[in-house]
Write a protein that binds this DNA or RNA. Structure first.
Lengths: 148, 148
DNA sequence: ATCTTTTTACAATATAGTTGCAAATACATA
DNA sequence: TATGTATTTGCAACTATATTGTAAAAAGAT
């Protein structure tokens, strides 16, 4: 998905973390810094591997991913393949940046789709969240590479 | 989601299982019988609890759910909350019956939406699977009860 | 510089799902 | 209906993923 990428300096990331009430620590800055380079949501394993050099603890990473999600800096989703993935929420718009994700049921690759690509209509009895557009959409199928 | 429910007798279920090449066994019939009563996809834990009286083994249940999925009698999906859920595939139409699912991010309740409730358009670079309508859609958000 | 609270890092513990295998069962064939 | 063979079950052991307890370390307020 094309979007103007907002890249924050370390100092900005530290301020961002503090603004949520959390303390700014090495592991947290590292996680945000890595995620702001990511073009798709990353799994715990992928983040752990990327931050390998820092040698940070698995449990610490899990706790930080959850904490950062709780305060709204990250979103945590399962795209249909039973893997948690984390994505930086774009704070620039002051709200969740919603766009559908396409996940390959074979290779697990995740693709961000333009948020215009999906139209959800809300029939009679459907949840109010749908009418208010407060929802996330995950689409699963075979990606072009795996389908070939 | 409203649909004419197809209820099969035990004998019919046994024949259905055999028609896939699998042997008809107590656990397998029990699983199918339970799932054809289900109004939404069920997790392994839910099925296990429902079949508690039969006292059937966890591993056997897991294996059967996978086997029945492999031969196409069930579908296995993760609705965004990191829980595998199994659903009887309707063989009456000779194909996967596709409809979007709405899963509450709070209570985990799953709701089936009419397949007309979602319109996915396929822009330029999107996966071919989308253009061909070979995909599943999961929507997550707060259900009415949890939003209240 | 000091103090209090949060966070880390390690280990221990849960939870979900899988695998190995002997005994039991399904079902094809006689 | 009995018999033989391949599949399936049930138990236990195991793996992977995720969570929790806690003493020591670090953050940030004073």
């Amino acid at each position: 998905m094309k979007k103007e990428r907002i890249v924050r300096s370390i100092a900005e990331l530290r301020a961002l973390i503090r603004s949520t009430g959390l303390r700014s620590t090495g592991p947290r800055v590292a996680v945000l810094q890595r995620l702001q380079q990511a073009i798709t949501p990353m799994s715990h394993a992928e983040i752990a591997e990327a931050l390998e050099p820092a040698g940070l603890d698995r449990a610490t990473l899990y706790r930080n991913l959850i904490d950062l999600t709780d305060v709204g800096l990250l979103s945590r989703t399962d795209h249909g393949d039973h893997v948690w993935r984390f994505e930086l929420r774009d704070q620039a718009h002051g709200q969740t940046e919603q766009h559908p994700h396409f996940t390959c049921i074979d290779c697990g690759e995740v693709e961000c789709l333009p948020d215009t690509s999906i139209e959800v209509s809300a029939p009679h009895q459907s949840p109010r969240a749908i009418k208010r557009h407060h929802f996330e959409v995950q689409i699963t199928g075979l990606c072009d590479r795996c389908a070939a």
